[in-house]
Design a protein around this nucleic acid. Structure first.
Length: 491
RNA sequence: GGUCGGUUGGCCGAGUGGCUAGGCAGCGGUCUGCAAAACCGCGUACGGCGGUUCGAAUCCGCCAUCGACCUCCA
């Protein structure tokens, strides 16, 4: 179908992507825990796998994209033992846990919409799949790799390791893990410190609880992803994505659970996006550099010099490869903002371009390069570099320094609508003289600029400058051209 | 301490052995009534030290430094 390669964390190599069922792709990505507003860190996996989703569809695959919503908080790690993370927040705000869940789910979806992240095919909630999770736990017990103790169920890592390899995804060795495991409260209950929880008994103060064969409790963190991914995608399924921070223990545990349940690896391709740092530092609440997406869009955070549009954030993220670390700074964001404007201006200019008899630009090669970049493990920075080469072509044609024939012009338009809008998901946020969505405004601006042309003929520079300066103040960008004028307005 | 991954020009960020990444900023030029935009041109970048090689940002070793993770937050 194509030579689309993706880097598989499991093999630590780029592999040609071949779906299990020809023409169909099943992908699962770890979604948000809805106990707070979405922050900058949430945007990267969402955008990375949105681009993957879009590109797979562009390649002609029918894609089922499952991204979960974790609405069952578990234990908070330090002071408030035995208290559910969501329940804790509920007490603080005097809201029902499910009210919190609803509120932040809505907020997350709103942010995703702003970032032009497409809705997944299925967005399952952990609380809505309790039966499936209990079934997974039971299946693991039946396989001999899980054991119950005091109403909790744990995964027997040692026993698993005697038959299978544990640690293949993260490169960890079981011997090393023995010496590097923190001492945790429930340690005495477990056979080994390496074991992880499949089901936890709920303490009396724990609000979110469900009945199970082992008593009232709640599922372990890793259980939900195994239950929901395989319910909707089968096993094995094609692609599992998530942030690098989830690689261990979460994804490692998912593999072990999958093998225990099904007798084989649950996932063909594991993909991990890298994280975002701020001014070279990790994001942390204690560091005061935790920026929420809403703050980013409005500029209301001490670290922000200005507001940045969702498209700007999206472009900024896509200018780096998803597996590379990315450092956030005002300087970098503003550079991205200007670059994006250049890209959008050319994309708008493309619509009004006049074809000639001959082409002096190589549109075919451009498309080829764009496809190669995306096929190379979603190399969006390279794609963007090629799109900027195209910007130069478009501007040159517009300036009359190059020409394009009718067929090439159509192909060029297709490249920009496919790659910029369709795959990168960047919606041009500008109005131009040719755009129809606000005809009245366009006509008024045209009228003013025609008056300016007349003033220009009379060498009435004062009137000329007044019209231009006032329109500039209102946010319009005025360009003098050979034919007359051109203008754009950022939305 | 362990595992994995970074360190590229003023800034961001591609690039895995010889071939211009790209964007932003800067400088010079063309165009312009002046601008803006655009176009053309310019910059001795690859953390340090050794090694392999005809040739290394790219491979190997050591060192420095930064980050993520290390199993009941998800």
């Amino acid at each position: 179908m194509s030579n689309f390669t993706i880097y598989n964390t499991l093999s630590r190599k780029k592999e040609i992507f071949e779906p299990i069922n020809p023409g169909h792709v099943g992908m699962y990505v770890c979604g948000p825990t809805v106990y707070g507003e979405a922050h900058l860190g949430h945007s990267r996996p969402a955008i990375t796998f949105d681009v993957l989703f879009r590109y797979l569809k562009y390649l002609g695959y029918k894609v089922r994209y499952v991204r979960n919503i974790t609405d069952v908080g578990h234990l908070v790690n330090d002071a408030d033992e035995g208290e559910d993370k969501i329940a804790r927040k509920a007490k603080v705000e005097e809201l029902e846990p499910m009210e919190i869940v609803q509120r932040y789910t809505n907020s997350y979806r709103q942010n995703m919409l702003q970032l032009n992240v497409l809705s997944p095919s299925i967005e399952p909630t952990a609380s809505g799949h309790m039966i499936e999770q209990i079934a997974v736990v039971q299946k693991i017990i039946d396989s001999g790799f899980g054991y119950e103790k005091n109403g909790s169920v744990y995964f027997d890592v040692e026993k698993y390791s005697s038959v299978h390899n544990y640690g293949t995804l993260s490169g960890r060795k079981i011997e090393d893990l023995y010496f590097n495991t923190r001492d945790l409260d429930a340690q005495p209950e477990k056979k080994s410190g390496l074991d992880f929880a499949l089901w936890k008994k709920a303490a009396p103060e724990h609000i979110m609880r469900w009945p199970s064969p082992w008593g009232d409790g709640f599922p372990g963190w890793h259980t939900e992803c195994t239950a929901m991914s395989t319910k909707y995608l089968g096993e094995p399924f094609d692609i599992h994505g998530g942030g690098l921070d989830l690689l261990f223990p979460h994804h490692e545990a998912e593999i072990a659970q999958g093998v225990a349940c099904f007798g084989h690896e649950p996932v063909r391709y594991w993909m991990h996006n890298n994280l975002i740092t701020i001014n070279g530092q990790k994001m942390g609440k204690s560091l005061g550099n935790f920026i929420m997406l809403d703050e980013l869009f409005t500029g209301s955070h001490p670290l922000l010099e200005k507001a940045y549009s969702p498209a700007c954030i999206r472009f900024f993220i896509l200018q780096a490869h998803y597996r590379s670390p990315l450092d956030f700074s005002n300087e970098a964001l503003q550079a991205a903002e200007k670059g994006l404007e250049r890209l959008f201006n050319a994309t708008a200019l493309l619509e009004g371009l006049q074809p000639s008899a001959d082409s002096t630009i190589d549109v075919g090669a451009l498309k080829e390069k764009c496809t190669l970049a995306m096929n190379d493990d979603l190399n969006t920075p390279i794609l963007i570099a090629h799109l900027f080469d195209g910007v130069k072509m478009i501007n040159s044609v517009s300036d009359g320094k190059a020409s394009v024939n009718t067929a090439d012009l159509e192909r060029l338009k297709t490249i920009y609508s496919d790659f910029v809008v369709g795959i990168l998901g960047l919606r041009p946020e500008i109005l131009t003289g040719g755009s129809a969505d606000n005809e009245l405004l366009g006509n008024v601006v045209d009228l003013l600029l025609n008056l300016r042309i007349e003033a220009k003929k009379n060498k009435d520079w004062a009137t000329c400058d007044k019209i231009r300066n006032n329109l500039t103040e209102l946010g319009f960008e005025i360009k003098d051209t050979k034919e007359g004028f051109g203008w754009t307005l950022k939305k």
